[in-house]
């Protein structure tokens, strides 16, 4: 069985990528199971999806903990412990990272036992016309499996993106194919994990007895104030609003419209964005009457200045 996990951020087309891969494998004659994993929708927040493919009906269900291939559509997730991107990687797990840094860089940095490959999907996606990262990467992922033909992949793209119009299908086909062709020398890198845990080899699960505990511990209540401050929603941001103080008229509209309440005024009356919480919704930039809020790619800003404090 192939077990594939796809990581990205909300909005990068990870669910669609899993469906393209699922349909392509199904077209290639496999039994397939694919599913996204998400809670409340959160654009920019870490999400993942998974695909299983086998020669016979698939009875396994749920999140894949021992993957054969992990695709990471956004390399900033590798810095985020809670995204759990590297869970269960073994010497036989192939890792595909969408990054403008080299495979050598990631090999040295991550020190993983399995093969690491890198796709500069940003460039491909931009050339094809703003194709989401997930859709670009899935072309490389399909090639790494070595069992998905060009035709099966293209059919899958057309099927899964049919609802998005002909232009989107064409752009994605181009991007997916480019990634697929670029990985021709890596075709078949992914190994199907043949050996599963045998009854004797499996470690016992470590169940424990629960004791009856007192309140407030035993009920799902939160007694500490303002715990939501600990949720650094700024980590979800892929694009960043920046105040241009030359153009800003200090009208304060952005401060009133910010749904996160993360814009404040400094002593001169200029708005200041708290990037620990700014999700990058860009409502402020869209509504600013003086167009005094610029939009920058988060990745570019972080390369210059890794610690994102206040502006």
């Amino acid at each position: 069985m192939y077990r594939i996990r796809l990581h990205g951020r909300g909005g990068q087309g990870i669910k669609t990528a899993s469906r393209i891969l699922g349909t392509a494998l199904f077209r290639a004659g496999f039994e397939v199971q694919d599913a996204p994993r998400y809670g409340a929708e959160r654009r920019g927040a870490p999400i993942f999806a998974y695909v299983r493919a086998d020669d016979k009906a698939i009875c396994e269900r749920g999140v894949i903990h021992r993957p054969d291939l992990v695709m990471v559509a956004d390399d900033t997730l590798l810095d985020l412990t809670s995204a759990n991107v590297l869970e269960g990687l073994s010497g036989s797990t192939a890792l595909l990272i969408n990054s403008n840094r080299s495979a050598l860089h990631w090999c040295q940095r991550l020190q993983l036992p399995g093969p690491v490959t890198v796709l500069d999907g940003g460039a491909i996606g931009a050339r094809a016309g703003r194709v989401p990262a997930g859709a670009v990467c899935v072309g490389a992922a399909a090639r790494l499996l070595g069992v998905v033909s060009r035709q099966a992949l293209l059919t899958a793209v057309a099927e899964e993106l049919a609802g998005h119009g002909a232009a989107a299908v064409e752009a994605s086909r181009q991007a997916v194919l480019q990634a697929y062709d670029q990985f021709s020398s890596e075709a078949g890198l992914v190994q199907r994990l043949q050996v599963a845990a045998t009854p004797t080899a499996a470690a016992p699960p470590g169940w424990i007895e629960l004791a009856n505990e007192a309140l407030p511990q035993a009920a799902a209540t939160i007694t500490a104030p303002a715990t939501s401050r600990q949720v650094a929603t700024g980590l979800w941001r892929t694009r960043r609003p920046q105040i241009d103080r030359q153009r800003c008229s200090r009208c304060g509209l952005c401060l009133n419209l910010c749904p996160e309440g993360c814009i404040d005024l400094d002593e001169d009356g200029f708005p200041v964005i708290d990037y620990r919480y700014c999700k990058g919704c860009l409502l402020c930039a869209a509504q600013c009457p003086r167009k005094a809020i610029r939009i920058c790619e988060e990745r570019a800003v972080q390369t210059e200045k890794p610690e994102g404090g206040e502006s």
């Binding site: 412990t81 511990q217 939160i222 715990t227 600990q230 949720v231």
Partner: peptide, 15 residues
């Protein structure tokens, strides 16, 4: 989670 909920600990990069 309980430690965060009852104020005896700060969260990690809980996202």
């Amino acid at each position: 989670l309980q430690d965060i909920a009852h104020g005896s600990r700060e969260g990690d990069d809980a996202s």
